[in-house]
Design a binder for these strands. Structure first.
Lengths: 137, 137
DNA sequence: AAGTCGTGCTTGCATTTTGCAATTCCACAC
DNA sequence: GTGTGGAATTGCAAAATGCAAGCACGACTT
C-alpha cells in the first residue's frame, strides 16, 4: 500500500488507512463477526495469506483502529480488539453492505446479519456494539 | 487489482469493484465534484497517473458504475458519467466522509461540501443528485 | 493541406506490493 | 527436553503501481 502525504480530504484519509483490498475484510470480521484471533482471520472465506494478514493487523494497530492484547489465559494467544475509531466505522460498513446487498446477486442471505440489516439496522448495530463493552467501558 | 472469485459477501463484492486506493477517489470526483473529463480527474490533488486513471475508468465502466460518452460539441472530449449504481454510493461516500471528518485533523473545512455535510446531509445529497438529472431521467 | 494544439490513452521500465509455501520464533504442556 | 499450536517472517515468482515519454486523432489555424 502506497502512502500519500497527509491529506486534506476525509475520503483520502480514510482510504489511506483501510482503502486496500484486505483491511476492510479484517474489520468486517472484527466488527460483524466478532473475531479476535489471528487464526480466526485466517479462516475467513477470502483466504488471506499470513504475511498480508500480519502486515494489515500491524498497520491497523498503528492507525489506531485495533489494539493488540495478550490473551487472557494463554499469553501467546494474541487478541485484537477494535478501538472507538474502528467502532465508528459501523455506519460505513453498513452502508457498504446495503450497496453490496443491492447489486451482488450472489449475496448469501442466510448469513444471519443480512436479514436484520434490511429490517432493523439500528437494533443490529446496538446489539453488535455489546460485543465491545470491554473496549468502550 | 486482484480479482477474487464471485463472492457471497456484499462487502467483498463492493471491495472487488472499488476497493483499491484509486477508484473511490475517481468516484468522489464524479459524485461530489461533478467532474466528468479525463483531464479533470488528472488535475486532482492526489496526482493519479495517466495509466492508472485509464485502467480505473475502464474497470469502473466494466463494473457498470460509469458510462463513457462522446463529448457533445467536441467528439474527442470523452465524458464519464455515473450510473444509478454509482449514485447509490452516496450513502457510502457520506459515511466515509463523516468518519474521515471526525478523525482527520487536516481536513480542509473550507471545501464547500464539508460544512453542509455535518449540518444538512440530506439536502446536500439531493442537491448533488440534481447534477445527474441527465443520467437518471 | 499542413501545422499544431488539446484530449484521451498506451508503452516501457524501475519500484513496490501481492500471493503462496516454507520456515522460524516462542509460550506453554507434558 | 520434546512436542504442540499460534503468530509472524522469509524467499521468490507474479502482479500492480509510479513515472516519463510518446502515440492517435479530432478540431482549429492559416
Amino acid at each position: 500500500m502506497k502512502k500519500r502525504p497527509s491529506t486534506v480530504c476525509p475520503i483520502v484519509y480514510a482510504l489511506d488507512i483501510w482503502g486496500d483490498p484486505w483491511s476492510l475484510v479484517i474489520l468486517r470480521d472484527v466488527l460483524i463477526h466478532n473475531k479476535r484471533h489471528y487464526r480466526e482471520f485466517l479462516a475467513s472465506r477470502e483466504r488471506i495469506s499470513t504475511n498480508i494478514l500480519s502486515a494489515r493487523l500491524q498497520s491497523l494497530v498503528e492507525a489506531g483502529l485495533l489494539i493488540k492484547l495478550e490473551g487472557d489465559t494463554n499469553r501467546a494467544q494474541t487478541m485484537y480488539r477494535p478501538t472507538q475509531k474502528a467502532l465508528d466505522l459501523f455506519p460505513v460498513v453498513f452502508a457498504i453492505m446495503h450497496w453490496g446487498l443491492k447489486y451482488n446477486p450472489n449475496t448469501d442471505m442466510t448469513i444471519p446479519i443480512m436479514q436484520e440489516l434490511t429490517t432493523n439496522e439500528k437494533a443490529l448495530e446496538l446489539r453488535l456494539l455489546e460485543n465491545f463493552d470491554d473496549v468502550t467501558s
